[in-house]
Nucleic acid binder design. Structure first.
Lengths: 187, 187
DNA sequence: TTTAAAATGTACAGATCGGTACACTTTGTC
DNA sequence: GACAAAGTGTACCGATCTGTACATTTTAAA
């Protein structure tokens, strides 16, 4: 099954939005950068917001798949995998063109909590939370929910800090903190 | 000394930008919301970007003053003050109209690291870092720099998470984690 | 090869963008 | 009360914004 024009559009729009921002990227620029006609775009998506939502859906899928897989590759036990999250993050931060978290940026540009794009971003974070709580439970750590949320606070902090770029290696700072927190939840 | 029109503009623009976003707020909207004529605006600031930079400067001053003062009020010793940061954050998150960190949002909309607005945001975070390292040193904690950066990761994470609003009380999750990390740095 | 669906190119509408021009009014100071 | 400085209102510039209309070409399946 060949990728449809729709998939191609979403994929390419993802790159442009990620590098340029949502409000800063007009539909004309999207035509220029993707080579897909505006008519075609508006046949697949009623509005720009709808396109952005599709982009975020794809990003959610890609990002969580990548993170979960990488955590499994880098850690044997659930406990190791939780820590390995920060090694995965370090790899991400080191990529050329790293520009922070797409969902944080989306919620920065669409601030109203009732906006579908904001909600979608919150959903992404919620799914990450569920997954990490599951891992903490599998690892039989004390207070798995609190611990998982704390590790995610470190993750979000590291993502933002890596983008602001005023600190050397936020991923490793976070990893060390995570390991210490995890130690205290071992029972 | 009465506040000048310039101060009034920066102050009011701050509120509008914070609630509406930077790119999403046009100069015409600023005229409408501040009651200051466009001619006057452009006499004080050459460009919109210059105005944004002035806004961020004011925000930096206000925010750091507020945070440092609140930390001193809520904690006796430097050690207590570091932990009290998260109580201060909780107060902030609870304010009506809380919309996250202005500098994270600025760096989300002006992503290029070489952009003056992005740099200004990084400067703000750097100044916070310096202050927290100083406190950690005063508290005679081990590895004051690493610890301070870790506490700030928790802070940024909590700010983002509070804005995404998918979690109950990120400030208290962060505070608990901070207290545990701090315990491990006591010598 | 016929035929319907999908995609294209282009031109445009109406609104808004950042920024300027210009004539006018208010304000504070001597 | 004169006078310069500061601020106002409005109309406008060219560019860009999201979204649409319409006639044409490409694609894919029968």
């Amino acid at each position: 099954m060949r990728p449809t024009k729709r998939d191609e559009l979403v994929q390419k729009a993802l790159k442009v939005f990620y590098q340029n921002g949502f409000n800063a990227t007009g539909m004309d620029k999207l035509v220029a950068k993707t080579g897909i006609s505006k008519t075609s775009m508006y046949k697949h998506f009623r509005t720009k917001d709808d396109l952005i939502i599709a982009v975020l859906r794809l990003r959610d899928e890609h990002f969580r798949n990548w993170l979960y897989r990488r955590m499994e590759e880098l850690g044997e036990t659930p406990e190791e995998q939780l820590i390995a999250m920060f090694d995965a993050l370090e790899e991400w931060f080191a990529e050329a063109g790293y520009k922070g978290c797409m969902f944080i940026k989306a919620s920065s540009e669409f601030q109203d909590a009732s906006h579908p794009i904001h909600k979608q971003s919150a959903d992404h974070k919620r799914m990450l939370e569920t997954h990490m709580i599951g891992l903490a439970e599998k690892a039989e750590l004390a207070n798995p929910e609190v611990l998982a949320r704390q590790l995610l606070l470190l993750k979000e902090g590291a993502i933002v800090t890596a983008h602001l770029g005023h600190t050397d290696n936020p991923a490793q700072d976070a990893k060390l903190a995570a390991a210490q927190l995890l130690d205290m939840h071992r029972q």
